[in-house]
Nucleic acid binder design. Structure first.
Lengths: 98, 98
DNA sequence: TTCTGATACTTTATTTTTTAAAGTACTTGG
DNA sequence: CCAAGTACTTTAAAAAATAAAGTATCAGAA
């Protein structure tokens, strides 16, 4: 009964944009909204929405501050997020085979 | 401007269930509806829908025949599907890093 | 100084996907 | 024959992704 265990693939991470965000964030300490936007090519709206989902899942920590009067958002992986990322990668490898 | 090129990730393949189907089909010559269902754990409805999407994309060839009076469906990757699969894997590797 | 365009976001609405539910058709075991 | 199971498809409902519009600030040009 050795199934291809699809349910083990983390939904939250699997979405394309979020996958890109996680991949990028896994390689840096933190990143700004603008950096994430440039790296992933996402629209503002998309980025905002998906960043929030990752935040709600506890995978990224989003910090909002002001530079002068302009809002400035930075994101970084949480410990939980890093773990989820590693797990996701493991599952993917298993799924994709040898 | 070296972006994480998310758009290069094939939408059709990326969906979880279809990813599982492609992964499984890439390792066998062909498979029956029942085998695919067992391997992926998908419900009948889901499998039917996603199999059709893969078919519409030209990635799998679905053949329907009768064994006695019962319908029997088998699926196998097309050449195009195999290529798309390899491309997908390449893109994924690139995205996920080193 | 006032207008224009750009940055930095969020919220809401629209569309697309995914999943779940129900339905059809046939077969097999009791 | 009847109940239960296989093998699907179709339709409807839920969830997700994308796009559009809106708020607020800033920076440069007229």
């Amino acid at each position: 009964m050795a199934e291809f265990d699809l349910n083990a693939l983390d939904e939250v991470i699997h979405g394309k944009l979020r996958l890109g965000l996680m991949a990028f964030l896994s390689g840096v300490d933190h990143a700004s909204f603008a950096e994430l936007k440039a790296q992933t090519g996402a629209s503002d709206g998309n980025l905002s929405v998906h960043l929030r989902k990752l935040e709600e899942a506890g995978y990224v920590l989003v910090e909002k501050s002001f530079i002068g009067r302009k809002p400035h958002t930075t994101a970084k992986l949480t410990a939980e997020g890093r773990k989820a990322w590693i797990d996701y990668l493991d599952q993917l490898k298993r799924l994709l085979g040898p």
